[in-house]
Structure formats: C-alpha cells, structure tokens
Design a protein around this nucleic acid. Structure first.
Ligand code: FES
Ligand code: FES
Lengths: 138, 138
DNA sequence: TCATACTTGACTAATTTAGTCGGGAATCCT
DNA sequence: AGGATTCCCGACTAAATTAGTCAAGTATGA
C-alpha cells in the first residue's frame, strides 16, 4: 500500500505552480528543476492535467502552464484521480460487480477495505491545493 | 495506491480463523478453500503471523492453526505491519531522515502525505479482528 | 508406519512502475 | 523569415515489485 511517484509528482508540481506562478505561465523545466523532478515524466502528467482542465498551456517563447481553476477549488483527490492514481483499497471487479473472487457476493473483509477507501477519499477531498500551499494541513 | 493481495489475504484468513476456528485448530487447506486463496502463498503469510505471535500451530494429523491472541485485541493495522504490507504514504528515507529528495528538508507535500498515512493508520487501528467478524465495520 | 499438516528457502512469471527518447507543432523575439 | 523556446504526443524499456509456485524437510497422531 504505497503512494506512487505519479501522484506525488503531480501534486508537488501543481503546488509549485500555484505557489510561484502568479498569473504568468511557468515553464515545465522551471518547475521540474525547483522540485527536482524528471521533466519528461512531468510532461506526461501535465498532458493529462490539461486534458482534464486543471491547467492551461501557452506555447512558444515565455510559454508554460497556468492553473485553469482557482487553487481553492482543486481538491487533492481530484488530482490523483485525473492522473490515474486511483485509491484502490478493494479488489472487486467494479465493472462486472463481482467480488474479489468469482461470486458476486462480497468477501468478509470487503466492508473493511471499502471503509478505508472512503476514509482516504474523505481526507483528500477535504484538502485543497491552496491548503497545501499555505501549509494548512493537519 | 492500491492494497496488495498479501494484506488482503492475511486479514481474510485471520477473519476466517477467528470465525470458524472455535478453539480447535484449523488446517490451512480448509481456510484456503473456503476463502479461495492459494495455499502455498498462505503458508508464507502464516509463517510470519506465527513468528510475530498472532497464531499458534499444531503439526501432524488434525493439526492446523489457532489464534494465539484474543480476536478483540488484534488490530488490523498490526496484521498489515506484521505481514510486511506497510502503509507508505511518504517517500522519505526514514533511516537517514532525508526528505523525498536529497536535502533533509521536507518537501511541500510532506505534511499532506503524512497526514493521509496517519488517517489510514488511525482507521485501521480502531478496528479489531472481532469487529470484522461481527460486521461492526462502519 | 503412513498419511496429514506445518516449515522453510529458493525460484520464477507476470505485472506495474518509473521513467526515457524522438519527432512534431505552435509561438514569440529579433 | 528564422531560430529559439516550449508544449504535444506516442512508443519504448529497464528495473522493481507482486504474486505466486515448487520441492524438500519435519513433526504428529491414528
Ligand atoms: S474486496 Fe470486495 S469482495 Fe473482496
Ligand atoms: S514526502 Fe517526505 S519530504 Fe517529500
């Protein structure tokens, strides 16, 4: 049960963008250097973030990314979902609604893991990008 | 961020043991069949669970495993830790106390992930094996 | 003594993660 | 116009992790 770099990098980069990018676009290289993240990996992440409407891009010289939404309205849970870092605590096949094995009955521990997932989601939904920037975290 | 089979299997097996094993030892094969888990994998897990004092074993004919502690006192978080399914939400090097990169300062998102980890741990520590058996979960 | 069941370490296939690489397209500055 | 800069995008890959299997051994009870 560990958090992957994908999710961590995405949040770090967006926090950096919210913190240092005051209106003007920030180049990815700048963010990557400041947070010491691999640039070409970040490109992948920002592609998705743009497609989902979290950031806007301007190309060419002096281009870069800007936040497309207010930092106060962006929930951490949204970022993780957008980037493809799902909070999978159960192993049910959600599409076919079959439990973690064969039958469509839920296993003995299903409620436990579902509860854990709900807990995590609730926590991450209660925290906005702005909260992280201003260090208003627990 | 997903829960591995190791942790899920371990808890499922222990719940089964607490639920069906009334004092008498249960053979691993029986548990494995009932929960449809791979036997040889479970063996590995129960090795650790025995070494950490969660279960006791009796060998030979009619042997098997019994709970070595009361189900009310066994916290889910303990099981996960014993089995080697750590709740790693941060990526700090805990031994050298360096942050997720180079410096020994914490990154901007450290408090966020640490908070998430604390939240999860708190939830899983508040639930005992007996709670899961009797479906007293949220 | 034989079947049953735990004990243990070594080994492996498949999956996922964490990236890299290369070429392209838009934009601005001079 | 031309070049520098920056985003855009897909394909590819090395390393790590997961999720097991397998085989050989040991203790116990009927
Ligand atoms: S985790 Fe959902 S049925 Fe087992
Ligand atoms: S996660 Fe601890 S310093 Fe970045």
């Amino acid at each position: 049960m560990k958090l992957g770099t994908k999710g961590r990098y995405a949040v770090m980069a967006l926090v950096d963008l919210a913190y240092y990018g005051q209106g003007k676009p920030l180049a990815l290289v700048e963010i990557a250097q400041r947070q010491s993240l691999p640039i070409s990996y970040l490109e992948q992440l920002f592609l998705k973030l743009r497609q989902k409407g979290f950031v806007a891009s301007t190309r060419g010289h002096l281009g870069g990314y800007t936040l497309a939404r207010e930092a106060e309205t962006i929930r951490i849970s949204e970022i993780l979902e957008a980037i493809g870092e799902p909070l999978e605590t159960t192993r049910c096949d959600k599409s076919s609604s079959t439990g973690c094995l064969g039958t469509n009955a839920k296993c003995l521990t299903h409620a436990l893991w579902a509860g854990l997932g709900a807990q995590m989601h609730h926590y991450l939904q209660g925290i906005s990008l702005a909260d992280v920037c201003e260090r208003r975290v627990i």
